[in-house]
Design a protein around this nucleic acid. Structure first.
Lengths: 116, 116
DNA sequence: CCCGTACATTGACGGTTGTCAATATTCGCT
DNA sequence: AGCGAATATTGACAACCGTCAATGTACGGG
């Protein structure tokens, strides 16, 4: 009845801890890391937070430079990074560019983290 | 009775979107960014995932180098980053160093993200 | 006591990143 | 048409980051 006793082995003297369930694939890791990299900067976190806290859930660049205390090109750069990562969306009205949160983006990233 | 009408202003022709609630402080942003920076790397995400998926919730360095395909010093470096960020804990047993997830660390980071 | 094994640390090197000044672009207004 | 304001893009530079080879450290077994 005990035909396949091939399992185990490797156990005794070494470390070899087998996986109980499968881990993140290299591709999935690369993808998630890219999104997290966009979030892993204090300035960008504040920009996201300010946009989220703004009336109507949107803000233009001129609203954002003063609070973070950085030059306009730098702020534009950070906003571009956030847009490219799918966290912010950009709408141009007249001369102004309004940025707002992509609805489920933060929750999605957050979920990916918990189910690592 | 209406002695200080100095407020408002700035409203009409410009963008000036007022904040509905307060945004992340610079200090809080710096703190969260530090933790996210530790997470924002594909190799470190995979290391976390493998540790989590390992039997007993722990793994030693020799279990981790092969799956990620990097040199032992590099893996040790990444593990140190994760420990310093409070995401992993290290226990030495004999010659081996066992790494395991800090219980609520991932959930905490995840919560911080959602309540940006 | 010495050897081998598991892991950490150091030093070096190329690639990436955050920042700004300068410049370009786009749009509304007169 | 032309000007000014809001934003984007470019180029440059210093700082940081991921990686490895080489070396150091600590532990267990003969």
């Amino acid at each position: 009845m005990h035909s396949l006793e091939l399992t185990d082995v490797t156990a005794t003297d070494a470390c070899r801890a087998p996986l109980v369930r499968d881990a993140l694939s290299a591709d999935a890791a690369e993808l998630l890391a890219h999104k997290l990299k966009a979030l892993a900067d204090p300035t960008r976190l504040r920009l996201l937070s300010i946009v989220r806290a703004s009336q109507g859930g949107e803000a233009c660049v001129c609203d954002l430079t003063a609070p973070v205390g950085l030059s306009q090109p730098t702020v534009s750069h950070h906003l571009k990074v956030l847009v490219d990562a799918g966290l912010l969306s950009r709408t141009k009205r007249g001369t102004w560019a309004y940025y707002s949160l992509v609805p489920t983006a933060l929750v999605d990233a957050s979920d990916s983290l918990q189910s690592l």
